[in-house]
Amino acid sequence: MQQDAAHLKVTRDGEILQVEFTSRKILDEGNIAEIGDALGALIEGERRPRLIISFAGVDHLSSAALGTLIMANNKIQGREGQLRLCDIAPQIYEVFLITKLNKLFHIYPTIKAARESLQNQGRPPFV
């Protein structure tokens, strides 16, 4: 089942929600607030959210986008849910390394690997 929120393409696979961004540059400062609202609404619609966010095709990321991801993660943790990030381009992944947010987020190379990790919770990430 697929539903679309602002700037997001959302696909449900059982209890897992897969989120993709609909534009390469949507994580600019100018429209990150809308994405944050859309992610927040998705999370609040789930009793125990299990979310995968794919960065396929995303070629830019600001610190405001990182803040939005952290807020989403905090909300998900507050609901005893799970968040996985995947398909992150090398230069975007460098941003996670510099900020050490690779220690906070569970990051996987592909959406398949992220999905498998949610189906086998407790296994450590391997990126």
Partner: peptide, 21 residues
């Protein structure tokens, strides 16, 4: 320092770190 373990889940404060990097 936004990379301190105790601050990793704070949403803000990374802009200058990224500019310098």
């Amino acid at each position: 320092d936004p990379t301190d373990d105790g601050r990793l889940d704070c949403p803000g404060g990374r802009g200058i770190l990224l500019m310098r990097a």
